[in-house]
């Protein structure tokens, strides 16, 4: 099953967050699964229009996802997904 790794920055808000596995599908479905495991996390990652937040990046096999709007990028059984915060100053 695809594995999901998280930036450690999210642990401040979700202390029990750990590397996890999810069913194959698209990124939107992956995020919905994470929401069911960690209620509230979805709105840390996407805005109220369902678009990936500007300063959040998701990588599949080390590549940035292409579709930040519909979250349609596919993930396969052997894929590793990384959910990271973008670098931004201040």
């Amino acid at each position: 099953m695809p594995r999901v790794k998280f930036t450690s920055a999210l642990k401040r808000f979700f202390p029990n967050l750990t590397e996890t596995t999810v069913p194959s599908g698209n990124i939107g479905e992956v995020l919905q699964k994470l929401e069911s495991d960690y209620p509230g996390i979805l709105h840390y990652l996407v805005d109220d229009a369902g678009v990936l937040r500007k300063h959040v990046n998701i990588f599949i096999r080390g590549e940035l996802i292409k579709d930040r709007q519909e979250l349609s990028d596919r993930v396969s059984e052997q894929d590793e997904i990384m959910i990271m915060q973008a670098l931004s100053g201040g």
Binding site: A9, Y44, D47, H55, V56, Q85
Partner: peptide
């Protein structure tokens, strides 16, 4: 107003 995670 989280810089990365949006309004809460």
């Amino acid at each position: 107003a989280h810089r990365h995670w949006g309004e809460k």
